[in-house]
Design a protein around this nucleic acid. Structure first.
Lengths: 214, 214
DNA sequence: TTCGTTATCGTGGTGATCCCTGAACGAAAG
DNA sequence: CTTTCGTTCAGGGATCACCACGATAACGAA
């Protein structure tokens, strides 16, 4: 009776099992995968109608899966399923070309409906996402992000964001304090921040540095 | 036939469904809950043998559930199930008195066994956790953490960590800049940091402040 | 070759941060 | 009652962070 065929991609086996249970009635779960390579292989070989995709995967992100599949000329629809409602994650996935973005915490019974919507062509999003989806252009535009820094500048950021003083950073990099100051000045301009403190926060949030703890 | 009775606590309905599926054969899932209040109520009223507990819950943490249940004089075993292998989370839950700590990514089929182990009295932990569980005493001991600060000092930290200058902080707290300086000096000593920048990073990492952006 | 970018280093300056010393008051603990 | 602790405040000095403005040199693209 031709239920839509879908693939589940998530690094948590338990969550895949849960999703499978909700989806079993209306969909045919043809494969599951726990990392990027597995996922691409599974999707390419099964050519499903849709993929339920986690954003954070070991060995990469959900976006890598999307580009991997597209590179293999396989066409199917992708729906993101993430714990994170973080703006950067959402932007990244939408730019990768996913067809829906759902937040794990806000759905249970409605999951099948939302997946079906995505397969039909509309774009279902969780309420948390819908909120800032409206000004997502702003978000993308105003993101003067880490990428536009030169290698040397990035290096400076890494030390400064970890709490190094200008002097300590200079010593570590074998340059003069004045050079570090100049770099910082340029970094401030490029990232649109005004102090090393704001810079540190930005660096943390964008995952450039990953809080030494743990 | 008296299967052990357990309660599932996690804010993701899908994950509960997945866990339930894995556990159904060997356990009797008597209740599920999605937040702290629900969880405590469910556990107190059903008095299960064990609880599978997420660390991060809306409206609180898993530790709140443990203390809530203990306060009601209900005795049962708790097993943590978290996406996070963060040292602080683990320490917090172990101090709250959980009987096992599992990381979501590293288990599927083995879940029932591990839960059974916890109910039997041993303490199952995921490999990621076991690693630093060995020197957890060090971790706790060498954590010259926020707790040892006086209330007023904590207040200062909150502003400084958010990027306030000494002057702005002083104005906001209706004290002189010199007072803020003194507090900071004491804070530096107690936390073993040397500058407001290190302090900000520490506060950021330990979740005392939560990066205003986004 | 000229231009833009990157990286390097300077002078000079202002305000913020940090350290040291010292001190006063009240509350809690001994 | 004495001691300790938390909170408040101050002077003075050393260092740091940031800004404005400028300079040299290397490299690659237009």
């Amino acid at each position: 009776m031709s239920k839509p065929r879908i693939v589940l991609v998530d690094d948590h086996e338990i969550l895949r099992a849960g999703a499978a249970k909700y989806l079993a009635e209306r969909f045919d779960v043809v494969a599951e995968a726990g990392d990027v390579a597995e996922a691409v292989a599974a999707i390419v070989s099964t050519e499903p109608d849709g993929v339920l995709l986690d954003v954070h995967l070991p060995s990469g992100s959900g976006a890598d899966v999307v580009s991997g599949v597209r590179a293999a000329n396989v066409d199917c629809r992708f729906v993101c399923l993430s714990v994170s409602a973080d703006k950067r994650d959402v932007v990244k996935m939408l730019q990768a070309g996913v067809d829906g973005y759902l937040v794990k915490s806000t759905l249970g019974d409605r999951l099948p409906d939302l997946v079906a919507e995505a397969l039909d062509g509309s774009m279902p999003v969780s309420p948390q996402i819908a909120g800032f989806l409206l000004d997502i252009d702003d978000a993308v535009a105003q993101e003067p992000s880490i990428e536009q820094l030169s290698p040397r500048e990035r290096e400076v950021v890494e030390y400064i964001a970890r709490g190094y003083s200008y002097r300590k950073t200079a010593e570590t990099m074998f340059v003069s304090v004045k050079t570090v100051e100049t770099h910082m000045s340029h970094i401030f301009d490029k990232l649109g921040v005004a102090s090393r403190h704001e810079l540190a926060i930005r660096a943390f949030e964008s995952g450039l540095v990953d809080g030494g703890a743990s």
